[in-house]
Design a protein around this nucleic acid. Structure first.
Lengths: 353, 353
DNA sequence: TCGCACTGCTAATCCGATTTAGCAAACCTG
DNA sequence: CAGGTTTGCTAAATCGGATTAGCAGTGCGA
């Protein structure tokens, strides 16, 4: 062990005052409690010289606040997306002098319970419950004893917890608008879900439902109707490949709205198989802004999931919860929607004449 | 706030004993200190009924151990790779009842200092210093006051800290062996580094150096010499594309060893441009097992970076450090090498006759 | 019957801060 | 100059456990 941490008592001793006085000065309440300028200076000087830093564990025991928040997600590692959420949360927390505990449940309710316990045992000041893919989740009981926020998730049952989610409806609108802006009116097909409002994959994906709503709304407003669509059970490249191949056997699309970038990757392959060029023959727009989107040739225009911003926002919302005097815990939690910016790249062109 | 946490005093009261006795029983030292069976049972029963859980903050203050470890990396979010490392560390820690603080320095030494401070202030029991890309790092002073481990990194200056890194040399051997096993002897080109021992990109990438060593060793042992190689300044798809195009203008390779999967993605594109088929015309093997490796067509054979295992191993090593009585802190830190498994997929075939 | 060892438990202290209650000295005030 | 107020600081309690020192009560031998 190093030469032992410097404690408040050490500071008090070198300043020649009592620990009480030292504490008062260092917590900024010295003026208020009539500590003289002289003593104040001595304490400050001693603290600086000794490089005193309060022991947060001790403060935590006494005051109950540990300047720590718990971040529990269903999956951290599956994609870089979660990493960005964590990063956003991390930075927002750090700016306030807070640290993050992280935990991963892998969808296991028992593990979730254990993690929540472990965090409560460490007296976290608040908890962020994050989902990798936007979806509704069952809010575990025992979360509400502490300020908490749902991140990228909505409560399955009514709950007072606030949520932070991407604005998927607006994202759908943006994708559709991008095609309309390029002049597309016909031959617009959807890959992954649609064309009907109900044509969504099972599993309660919020993204599928809301993106579809936004797309249909903008198209309808422009008097355009999607020429067709394929629901994909899962949104992996192979499904995009299969669905697009299927489509190309019978139809000749002018534009594809793929429900995520991985589907679009498969769609590119299928288009290539049929000798169709992106974007000259077929325009493609997708969602997520996964790293592959900028590796694909031509680079894919896509509506980005703002993971970093979601993480930051969750911390912001959590802090307003912490700040609040938790009287008003009745009612439904607010839902905060974070904008999804469109990344215009090379996969959209005006329809060939 | 919930109905207040149950404390040891509560347990003692309902069991009708002193807090001391309750503490003794619950810490398992009851037998040793001659607490009667009867009392022991009463305490246990009371604890179970009240669902008592010790307040770790309090224990931390008294004993100095918080069942918490700090995980500081240069980048969390840039790739899913870090996510897997964190996941491995997370699970290994959880199995021992430990939680993880995470922090991200983004290469900023000042931020690193602040994070280390923040973690020390919270009395972490140990620290993992992780790098995203295997490399040598300057060990910040002040780390050694606590048990610590370098993850995916080697100390730049001599240091007593142990390191956990992927076994890149063996990975290089495995990649070369895979080609030899398929019957390749000629026209083997390296993309990203090589062919000479010194032909590595600037920046001190451990991966470049060690993979190259392993590749050259196995090839040399088989009496084979690489037909050529291209150093790529950065290992992104566009560099792989450019380097491979350059190569194909003059040469007709039979096999490519790409120094990572993203280079291989570019190489695939270049090969396609020249009308060459993988693996019929050219076999390709790479490193990392990035998610794209299994999305590429044909699916890429690659030597996997064992991020998950690296994370686990770092925690294991850290615990032996924590367990140790830190007398023997002289000498160099041990280096633990984690095997990199090869993922055989579809991108290697015997050379055409 | 006294002293001693042992058994079984508890009182008191400590970890490092915050916070409440209060005390001595200086200063007024009439 | 006694009595009250202010000023400026400190003692002591507290948070929730772990740990050390020690205290009754019993049994046993001399």
């Amino acid at each position: 062990m190093s030469p032992r941490r410097v404690t408040l008592a050490d500071v008090a001793r070198t300043a020649g005052v009592s620990p009480t006085t030292a504490s008062l000065v260092l917590s900024g309440r010295g003026r208020e409690l009539r500590i003289s300028q002289d003593v104040e200076q001595r304490v400050l000087k001693a603290a600086a010289e000794l490089q005193y830093r309060p022991n947060i564990v001790s403060v935590g025991l006494r005051t109950g606040t540990t300047r720590t928040i718990g971040f529990i997600s269903d999956t951290v590692a599956t994609s870089r997306l979660a990493g960005d959420m964590i990063k956003g949360a991390l930075e927002a927390a750090r700016e306030r002098g807070f640290m993050l505990f992280i935990g991963e449940t892998e969808g296991d309710a028992e593990l979730e319970r254990l993690l929540l316990q472990a965090m409560h045992d460490r007296q976290v000041d608040g908890i962020i419950l994050a989902a990798m893919f936007t979806r509704t989740i069952r809010v575990p009981k025992g979360v509400t004893v502490t300020p908490a926020v749902l991140l990228n998730a909505l409560p399955k049952q009514p709950s007072p917890l606030p949520s932070v989610i991407p604005d998927e409806v607006e994202a759908g609108r943006a994708a559709a608008r991008a095609l309309l802006d390029a002049g597309h009116r016909e031959g617009i097909y959807l890959i992954g879900a649609g064309p009907g409002r109900r044509n969504v994959p099972a599993g309660g994906s919020v993204a599928a439902v809301e993106r579809l709503v936004g797309i249909r709304e903008v198209l309808a407003d422009a008097g355009v109707k999607p020429a067709g669509g394929r629901v994909c059970r899962d949104w992996q490249p192979e499904h995009g490949l299969a669905a697009t191949r299927e489509l190309l056997k019978k139809e000749r699309p002018r534009a594809l709205i793929c429900f995520n970038d991985r589907l679009a990757l498969g769609a590119y392959q299928a288009l290539d198989d049929f000798g169709l060029k992106v974007p000259a023959d077929v325009s493609v727009v997708a969602f997520d802004d996964h790293p592959i989107a900028s590796w694909m040739r031509p680079r894919l225009t896509t509506v980005a999931l703002p993971h970093y911003e979601l993480g930051r926002k969750a911390v912001d919302v959590l802090f307003t919860q912490i700040g609040r005097d938790r009287e008003d815990d009745g009612g439904e939690g607010e839902v905060h929607r974070v904008p999804m910016p469109i990344r215009l790249r090379e996969s959209i062109a005006p329809p060939a004449a």
